[in-house]
Design a protein around this nucleic acid. Structure first.
Lengths: 205, 205
DNA sequence: TCGCCAAAAATAACACCGTTGCGATACGCT
DNA sequence: AGCGTATCGCAACGGTGTTATTTTTGGCGA
């Protein structure tokens, strides 16, 4: 045969790394294959032979983002108190988003127009919410949380933190609103909403 | 002077209308000034003389979107029970989003890369949350909700519905998850989290 | 050892985008 | 009537993602 490939794994990582920097610095709009290739000292063709297309490149970023995100979530110390644990996981979630807002945009808000994650990437993404689901299943089994489908609670908690974080990142919140100060209060209130009423209240529905 | 302008209000409305259709049909990526102008039987210059630029055109769509959204919110029938009212407003919010998902993307998730709403548009957007804030202020004043800053509760409620809706619209939720079925349950749980503990429960924090 | 051949990479072309400079146009005023 | 000018639309510019074409390059057989 002929001419062994020089578009190897090292170049792949370099491109991925540089693409992450470009997006982190100036947003997804600033990620151009031509600029990326020039920065990495190669040609646009390299991106196509290594990744296939621009969406496929973004898919790799998406996957890497969820790898880091999953590590943060799985590494969160838990206490056994469901409300406190949901607050802790929610804080880790926000910290992860603030660490690289533009990457968060790729992962959760489809900020790159043409891109949709492939099946593998989606499966990985789904798995990162495991710690959240575990806390909730436990709380329901212990009778601390309302007896509703765990997925309902999980999606509810996820939606809440995702909503807060994405409103914050997209600049939809009023300037004067102190997110950091309110975040934990709101997290705790949301988690408390799933608590089973102890003894009192009007009675079971 | 010379040559009265033919790029009048009628054309402006026609372009706006067609732009809304293009986005609603194929997403923000499909909104091209060239295609838009061709569809409306004019040239791209018309868009520039009428709107200024593509972001400015999108700003007009943004404004129109919030006009409709504001009408839905303000038109929601309220009962006086804060939890029920928050559920009702949350349902109206989702209905509005599902009515035109891509417009929702423009309004709340910055789905058009270069676009940022101008000051007037943002002010209008802020005003549409008035009904929500009114319910919350009332509930706190009446001692039904926790005595925390109303903005904290408002942002929390907003974030919750926004999170739920945007996760749904971006396809981040698992296929098998029944959003419609869980939505009200989750809404009610979230609203309940802000209730002041009645008598029972472990005790004040 | 030389030359050939196929695989890989880079260059250049294509179709499209938002934006803008400039020439053609067509009305209102003198 | 004819001039001036505000308005309009064509065409060009620099950019994008993608693809076809050409060039390079190294391994293998003669």
């Amino acid at each position: 045969m002929a001419r062994p490939r020089t578009h190897d794994e090292a170049l792949r990582l370099k491109l991925l790394d540089r693409a992450g920097e470009l997006i982190a610095a100036d947003g997804p709009k600033a990620l151009s294959l031509r600029k990326l290739a020039a920065d990495a000292g190669t040609s646009t063709t390299a991106v196509y032979s290594l990744f296939g297309s621009k969406p496929d490149l973004v898919n790799a970023l998406y996957t890497e983002g969820f790898r880091r995100f999953g590590a943060r979530m799985a590494g969160t110390a838990l206490t056994g108190d469901p409300v406190e644990d949901l607050v802790a996981l929610g804080s880790a979630y926000r910290a992860s988003a603030l660490a690289d807002p533009n990457l968060y945009g790729i992962m959760f808000t489809r900020s790159v127009p043409g891109f949709e994650p492939n099946e593998d990437a989606e499966k990985l993404a789904r798995k990162t919410l495991e710690p959240l689901e575990a806390v909730i299943r436990r709380a329901i089994a212990d009778g601390v949380f309302l007896d509703v489908p765990p997925e309902t609670v999980a999606v509810g908690c996820w939606a809440f933190v995702h909503g807060l974080v994405s409103l914050e990142l997209t600049g939809n919140l009023p300037e004067e609103f102190d997110v950091t100060g309110s975040y934990e209060t709101a997290l705790r209130a949301n988690a408390s909403g799933w608590l089973r009423p102890q003894i009192s209240r009007n009675g079971p529905s």
